[in-house]
């Protein structure tokens, strides 16, 4: 075992432990923080894989956006220092079983699938390559999905503005 794999196992262990903690803790805020550590762990694995752009986007989107959103909704709705109600034992067993089944299914699929090495040219993982690919209209280009997603975001933004816009009182 070399240094690289030691780092991988450490990061993976952090991710898994935090993931388990985030569903097993009874403090809702701690659950959010453990979720945050899980997401950071996944970003760490991306860094380990040398996919730096995806790692940074993972942090920007999930940590800077989604976890902050979750924490804000906890702040606005929950009382500090309160624990969630204890769940029934049957429910616990059922959810554990469900998780185990999903895990087993995924692992089964991964082990049964035989991955073939592609002969397609390797696309670099720098920002420049990703950006070029994102806006290219040629082979494997992502211009159309990119534009569709931006339309979706634009629609969402306009929706937000319409909801947030305070209607002016009728002039009398």
């Amino acid at each position: 075992m070399n240094g690289s794999s030691i780092i991988f196992y450490l990061v993976a262990a952090l991710t898994l432990v935090c993931a388990v903690l985030s569903v097993s803790t009874r403090h809702i805020f701690r659950a959010a923080i453990y979720l945050l550590f899980t997401l950071i762990g996944i970003a760490g694995i991306y860094f380990w894989l040398d996919y730096q752009f995806i790692a940074a986007v993972q942090i920007v989107v999930y940590v800077g956006g989604i976890v902050v959103l979750i924490i804000f909704s906890i702040f606005l709705t929950q009382q500090a220092g309160e624990k969630l109600a204890k769940q029934k034992i049957g429910r616990k067993i059922f959810s554990a079983l469900a998780v185990f089944c999903a895990f087993a299914l995924t692992m089964l699929q991964i082990y049964q699938h035989d991955f073939v090495e592609t002969s397609a040219p390797h696309i670099g993982n720098t920002v420049k390559d990703i950006g070029g690919q994102m806006l290219s209209t040629g082979e494997n280009g992502y211009a159309l999905p990119f534009e569709v997603v931006s339309m979706l975001l634009l629609a969402a933004m306009i929706g937000c503005i319409v909801i947030a816009l305070r209607s002016k009182p009728e002039p009398k």
Binding site: I33, I59, V60, V63, V68
Partner: peptide, 9 residues
């Protein structure tokens, strides 16, 4: 810019 957003957490 990405990592500095962990600061807020």
């Amino acid at each position: 810019t990405a990592v500095s957003s962990i600061m807020v957490i």
